[in-house]
Amino acid sequence: MSTVELHDIRKSYGTVEVIKSVSLSIEKGEFISLLGPSGCGKTTLLRMIAGLETVSKGEITIGGRDATRLPPEKRNIAMVFQSYALLPHLSVLGNVLFPLEMRRIGTPASRREKAEAVLEMVGLAHLGTRYPRQLSGGQQQRVALARAVVCDPEVLLLDEPLSNLDAAMRERMQEELIELHRKTGLTTVFVTHDQEEALSMSDRVVLLNGGRIEQMATPSELYARPATSFAASFIGATNLVEGRAHAGVVELDGGARLRLPDGALNGGVSLSLRQEDLILSPPDIATGISGKVINRIYLGARMRYVVATSSGEIRVLADCDTGFDIGDRVCITIAPEKIVVLQGAALTG
């Protein structure tokens, strides 16, 4: 049963359409990420679910109820803002109590009990009397989460909640968020521009681009089978090349040939070759792309080579002991099953 349903949602400001027909149904208990570059409409979409942004066209149902025209306070939702939006004049406990008071849930005593229990869950039971400005970024983040989950919302909305934290803290909060989701079982919509965050945390990723859904898939599917060149280049580091397929072999535009996983493809194709799937060898191998190393960058665990080939510059992530130097001639190969065919190929029947 789906908790949140978006049906043909559109949003325009004047003549500019920022959301162009998005339909999406979010299952109960699901953790879903809205991923995309800035300006793709992910935050607008989230704010429309929250009721903070009006919907130009389409329908939103939350918990089976039509919520399209409901003001935010009448929707049973909770939201964590990028800035956390903790009320500065209220204590930590006051902030967690706030939604319970506003929604008139329980008696004053039971509210307090509940708020304290939630603070306990996020590990802040001892800081209830502090004020937001006295807390560290990570602690503020936890208060914002506690405040959001305290009245069991139908859906929990997270607007880039980790972007204001430093790298170490962000990693920890990622883990805590996943744990919190497992404990509460709340339906969660998570907005991010960070593909790693989206891949590591979600059950499903909705990749947005220019106000449209580019691809909707599980993280592993999105990584292994990107549907479009945008999806391929946004997830992970890749090389996009074009060529013509015939009898199980593709001849790239520069003349090099690669073996394909599927012999049935025929005609013009566009391929994604992930940097970490490519292999560098000395230049005497038959099927591969030959070229010259023009730069190499040490990355600690790996080494990135930039190779000039007849199909343009190709970047390869290789082990550090791959001992090529700038100027060396190399041959790039890839296992056929690792090649991702993006579009354009006609199947010969």
Binding site: F81, L87, P99, M102
Partner: peptide
């Protein structure tokens, strides 16, 4: 100079416009 999202946050927590 204060957080521009406070009022919106209050709305998502169930407070109406006057509250």
């Amino acid at each position: 100079t204060s957080d521009p999202f406070l009022a919106e946050a209050a709305r998502t927590m169930g407070a109406g416009p006057w509250k």
